[in-house]
């Protein structure tokens, strides 16, 4: 923070990181780095969990145990606890897919050489949020019927009738329109900000170490910048996990809200 304002005021050739750093030139043809990464992430997630689950032994080996830890976390702690033991099983595959896919893509942000969180491109989070939106509205309509579902989502139970004209548009806005937008924005923004911070501390630190004048101040602050960068990396890893968890949990909660009997 301190270093960046110094740089900004110093008027040197340093260019602070910006959105431009997230739009790298295409790898080959029209294929960009995040495009390659989503495909790699999906392949990696499927292959890894396929091999972890393949044996399906009663007494799990090390691999299966690791796979079951992740699967059990999504299945029991997210899906079952949120949706309820009666019909959570239908949604476990999707929630598990979302969790694993987002988690792997997020962690690409700290994997050496890859080092790019795919979800810092809002297009991918939009795709995920759109699928979640389609699913929870779809299962809600399938359960309550189109009008019943609309009433279910917009008319809260036990509210005085005179307040309904204000409440119904608000509920519609928050439950049907804003939900997918916040879902997409939250994941995008956290990954974008995290990656921006990492670029700032590493590239800025490099500039300070090598080019800043006076040298003594530059080297000292540059080293501090790298140390902070390492600390921020760990913080970012926590955020990467949390955001994958939050996205999955919110998807589960939206589904639970859509199919609940009455809230």
């Amino acid at each position: 923070m301190l270093s960046s304002s110094i740089i900004a005021l110093s008027g040197s050739t340093y260019e602070p990181p910006g959105p431009g750093d997230f739009f790298l030139p295409a790898l080959f043809g029209p294929v960009t780095k995040p495009m390659a990464l989503v495909v790699i992430a999906a392949l990696l997630a499927f292959v890894a969990f396929y091999f972890m689950s393949r044996k399906a032994a009663v007494v799990p080996g090390r691999l299966q145990f690791a796979g079951e830890a992740v699967y059990g976390f999504v299945r029991n702690s997210i899906a079952r606890d949120t949706i309820g033991a009666h019909d959570y099983q239908r949604y476990v595959p999707y929630l598990f897919t979302v969790f694993v896919f987002v988690l792997v893509n997020n962690f690409f942000g700290v994997v050496p050489l890859l080092q790019f969180p795919t979800m810092s491109h809002i297009g991918y989070t939009t795709a995920l949020a759109a699928i979640t939106w389609l699913i929870y509205n779809g299962v809600g309509i399938a359960k309550h019927g189109p009008l019943g579902y609309l009433k279910h989502q917009t008319v809260p139970a036990g509210v005085a009738p005179w307040i309904l004209p204000i409440l119904i548009p608000l509920e519609f806005l928050s439950n049907i329109i804003v939900r997918p937008i916040t879902l997409a924005l939250r994941l995008f923004a956290t990954m974008f900000a995290g990656h921006l911070l990492l670029i700032l501390f590493s590239v800025g630190g490099e500039f300070l170490l090598l080019h800043y004048d006076p040298r003594a101040l530059g080297v000292t602050v540059g080293l501090v910048s790298f140390l902070i960068g390492i600390a921020v990396s760990f913080l970012d890893m926590l955020v990467m996990f949390l955001q994958a968890y939050v996205f999955t949990l919110l998807s589960a909660m939206y589904i639970a809200g859509a199919i609940s009997e009455e809230h």
């Binding site: 989503v38 992430a41 491109h121 297009g123 795709a127 995920l128 699928i131």
Partner: peptide, 17 residues
């Protein structure tokens, strides 16, 4: 969002699902 990324993301997620 780029349309290409939305489509690619959706397709990849659906296949993975």
């Amino acid at each position: 969002p780029h349309l290409a990324e939305i489509i690619l993301g959706a397709v990849v997620v659906l296949i993975l699902w």
